[in-house]
Simulated assay, not measured.
Amino acid sequence: MLMKPPAPYLPVPSPALSAEDQAALTDLYIRGTPANTLRAYERDLLYVTAWKAARFDAALDWPEAEATVLAFILDHARNLGDAPPEDSARQTADALIAQGLRKSLACPAPSTLDRRIASWLAFHRMKNLASPFDAPQVKQARAKARRAAARPPAPKSAHPITRDVLETLLATCRGSRRDCRDRAILMLGWASGGRRRSEITGLMREDVSLKEFDKRDVVWLSLLETKTTLKGDTPRLVLKGRAAQALVHWIEVGEISNGPLFRPISKADRVLKRRLSSDAVAQILKHRLKLAGLPDGYASPHGLRSGFLTQAALDGAPIQAAMRLSLHRSVAQAQKYYDDVDIAENPATDLLG
């Protein structure tokens, strides 16, 4: 059942539409907006509302004034730790830090600023209003801020979980139901192409086909949607061998006949009915890293994704073949993992001997 999001995320009522059509438009917005996007909208609306209240002692306007959004860009385009205490941007940042909405006075990452602006822009579109972010001076300031704050991209995981690291984690999974579940999550998350947390926890038992398992040790997975594919456009993915066996073993041990594929397990080792949360995947990985004797923070769940592609490069798998499983939309994005491997093996690096 889809939960109706708060009114700011929905299209404004239009006098040109009948009540029936307005309801249909609202329903379209609800069904067509991913849950992760709704959560980002909620955080961003809270942030920009608090920012304007602290900066101008005023509520948001619809449409917002160009001067206000320009001030927003300028406030987030420099390191405010260097600003004097009486600086209005610093005072605003201090207020947001006190509210727990901002972490520090450092210049936010360009991607963070871009996401908040994108949400703000989306709210204007939902209200059928012209956006102040389309003004030439504002657009130019955004571009300059992005370039001024440019920094080397930080990896989403400190280390990729390559095959040897994965085997170390799997060795910590013994024989309890929790161990069976964690083994299946790690192997499915890695071997099916490096799945994201939301994709792993979003799987239902009905998304798993075991028709070819007895004959070929093959399991087929049907993802509803991913970050790079829309509903209905995601191709089926395959699990083979050990990964397929681990998943089937979990289904049998957990007695998963329908509903969520991966679920919480009680302290008494009893499988619960509700879906496992995305954050739980991070906790599972953290727990397994600790049991394996690896440092805290060694890898995040994205390490399953980066590790799959890194291992594919190490094993000489064509990038197109790896992308068919990882479902990367951009070759350039997937190529980064291959480049990290290839440059170390490039003969040109040994010219000096």
Rank of each mutant, 00 (worst) to 15 (best):
A58V: 04
D134A: 14
K144L: 14
L351H: 12
A83N: 05
D44A: 12
S104M: 03
V69G: 10
H159Y: 04
K211T: 13
E66H: 13
H328N: 12
S119N: 09
D87R: 05
L230M: 15
A184W: 01
S330Q: 08
Y338H: 08
I200K: 05
R125F: 07
L10D: 07
R274T: 15
A145K: 02
L105F: 05
R151V: 09
G232S: 05
L352P: 08
G307R: 01
P15A: 10
W62T: 13
H287Y: 12
L272K: 14
D342S: 13
F133E: 08
I256F: 07
A89W: 04
Q320Y: 11
A65G: 08
L129G: 11
A50F: 01
I284Y: 01
A7W: 03
G175K: 08
I97Y: 06
A299K: 02
L170F: 06
A19G: 11
E225N: 08
D315I: 01
R163E: 13
P8R: 04
G293D: 05
L237V: 02
G254Y: 00
A122G: 08
A7Y: 02
T49I: 07
A154D: 09
D315R: 03
F72R: 01
D179V: 00
H302M: 04
H76L: 14
L186H: 04
D179Y: 03
D340K: 07
P108S: 10
S104E: 10
S277G: 14
A16T: 12
A89T: 00
A54H: 02
A71Y: 03
P34V: 00
R181M: 04
E42R: 11
A312L: 05
A246P: 05
I30N: 11
H328P: 11
L105D: 04
G81H: 06
D217P: 01
D75K: 03
L247A: 08
Q333W: 02
H76N: 15
A282G: 15
L10A: 08
V331N: 09
A317P: 00
P347H: 06
H159S: 11
T26Y: 05
V208G: 12
T201P: 08
P301Y: 03
L272D: 10
P132M: 01
T229Y: 09
A130N: 12
F308D: 06
R125Q: 14
A122L: 04
R31Y: 15
D61W: 09
E252T: 10
A348V: 10
T229Q: 14
S176Q: 04
T26H: 09
L230Q: 15
A24Q: 14
R43E: 12
R147M: 12
G303W: 00
D339W: 02
T162M: 12
N79Q: 10
A141P: 09
T349F: 06
F308V: 01
G297D: 01
L96W: 00
A54L: 03
G100F: 03
L188E: 06
P6L: 01
G297R: 02
S104C: 06
